[in-house]
Computed example of a mutant assay.
Amino acid sequence: MHTKKILVTGANGQLGQCLQEISSVYPQYDFVFADRTLMPLDKQAQMAEYINDIQPDIIINTAAYTAVDKAESEPELAFAVNADAVGFLGELTAQKNIKLIHISTDYVFNGEGVTPYLENHSTAPINIYGASKLKGEQLLLAANPEACIIRTSWVYSQYGNNFVKTMLRLLNSRESINVVNDQVGSPTNAMDLANAIMTIAGQEDISGIYHFANTGVISWYDFAKTIGREIKSACVVNAIPSKDYPTPARRPYYSVMDTSKISLKLKTEIPDWLSSLKKTLDLLQHTG
């Protein structure tokens, strides 16, 4: 029997590293993990050659240009990686009948919603990063309607740079910190997302857009306060409005996504944000 081969791009990112960690749980697949040297998303000829060499059955595209603020001054690069390359991947996978799972973001929405965003809710990004990711979705589905897009939000893990690791460092080293309290969303543990992706990879009909995040809604301030409480930090967390913490890229105020569609697809409950946060804090405190 043919062992299916999975190519994971963005191997060194948070999600890529989580997929590496759990790959041994899926012996039915041969995994190939490619970083940007092997699979540079801004070099299409090299991408095509690499995919020809590997001949994967499934591609999980976790690679992206994710520097949200930097994207404001590097729009060409952001669009090359997050849009053009994704459209090109769509063309290649459609030609070769490769199953493609692509990761997108809550930033495709304008953040002015008041109820959780459904997959078909109208999009209107308010920064370059969000605009480049939305363009990638559009180009991908135009080139390969069979592709699967998973939008996620507020991703963190024990790997890479993320809000949880930054807060741990600050909460352990400062007397007080300021965190915005008017941006709300749902944190996503990258390990939970990795497991969801692997469940979907094993299914037949995966086409279309899905939303995945841990359940529950909080602000960044609540998130920071909770981390402080869990690690028994004496650092005082102060709530501030976004206008007092200006950044080059605007951030959506409301990033909550409805995850009922993917929950049905996975045939399982998605873990709540607090239990998933505790798992990551345990890992970070024992390894940190």
Score class of each variant (00 low, 15 high):
His102Cys: 11
Gln285Cys: 08
Tyr65Ala: 02
Asn214Val: 05
Pro252Glu: 12
Gln203Leu: 10
Ala201Met: 01
Leu41Trp: 01
Asn238Met: 09
Ser255Gln: 15
Asn161Ala: 14
Ile197Asn: 00
Asn120Leu: 09
Asn97Lys: 15
Asn144Cys: 10
Leu284Val: 10
Ile126Lys: 10
Thr268Ile: 06
Thr199Cys: 05
Pro248Asn: 05
Pro56Lys: 00
Leu7Gln: 02
Pro27Asp: 05
Thr247Tyr: 04
Ser255Thr: 15
Phe33Asp: 01
Leu139Thr: 02
Leu274Cys: 09
Gly90Ser: 09
Glu21Tyr: 09
Pro56Leu: 02
Ala234Gln: 06
Thr259Lys: 05
Gly185Asp: 04
Thr3Ile: 11
Pro187Phe: 11
Ile240Phe: 07
Leu266Asp: 07
Thr9Ser: 14
Ser153Met: 08
Cys148Ile: 06
Pro252Asp: 11
Gly16Trp: 00
Tyr65Phe: 14
Asp35Ser: 12
Gly136Gln: 04
Asn120Arg: 14
Gly185Glu: 03
Thr215Ala: 06
Ser186Gly: 12
Val217Met: 11
Asn52Trp: 01
Ala194Lys: 00
Ala67Cys: 05
Val237Phe: 12
Thr93Gln: 04
Ala63Ser: 08
Thr280Ser: 14
Thr188His: 04
Ala63Glu: 00
Phe163Ile: 09
Ser73Ile: 15
Glu175Asn: 13
Thr259Asp: 07
His286Asp: 12
Gln285Phe: 03
Thr247Cys: 07
Ile60Cys: 00
Ala71Ser: 14
Leu170Arg: 14
Ser157Cys: 09
Lys70Cys: 07
Pro246Ser: 07
Ala45Glu: 15
Arg36Tyr: 13
Val8Trp: 00
Gln20Leu: 01
Glu119Thr: 15
Leu89Gln: 02
Thr3Lys: 15
Pro40Val: 04
Met39Gly: 00
Tyr65Asn: 03
Asp35Phe: 01
